[in-house]
């Protein structure tokens, strides 16, 4: 995005558990237009990483923007990023809650 985003942070989550372990809400055409993390499950890769937090909004997954994506599509992009064996990690661009 050409628009500067305050406090955007790149977080690399290694796939070191059998699940990613986050719950998200939001997507295009909902009250929360970009996916927001609502739960981090203990024992999942995200929890082990330690840098993803409840309340963060996900802007990009492996460089793919989630802007304009409906909830199911955003969830599919994240799920496929976790499932693919091409990478041993997922890069999340997230924004801290303001």
């Amino acid at each position: 995005s050409p628009i500067p985003v305050p406090c955007a942070v790149l977080v690399r989550v290694m796939k070191n558990a059998s699940t990613l372990g986050i719950a998200i809400e939001g997507g295009a055409n909902t009250q929360q237009p970009l996916p927001r993390i609502v739960t981090i499950q203990k024992g999942g890769s995200a929890h082990t990483c330690g840098r993803l937090k409840v309340g963060q909004v996900i802007l990009e997954v492996n460089g793919v923007s989630l802007r304009g994506r409906e909830h199911k599509e955003a969830a599919r992009i994240i799920a496929e990023a976790f499932k693919t064996k091409e990478k041993d990690h997922i890069d999340f661009l997230v924004v801290e809650p303001s």
């Binding site: 372990g21 986050i22 998200i24 055409n29 909902t30 009250q31 929360q32 609502v38 994240i78």
Partner: peptide
Amino acid sequence: REKRLTLPPSEITLL
């Protein structure tokens, strides 16, 4: 603002 009020809440997906 009015548009925002008409938008539905999102479902939640566990990943």
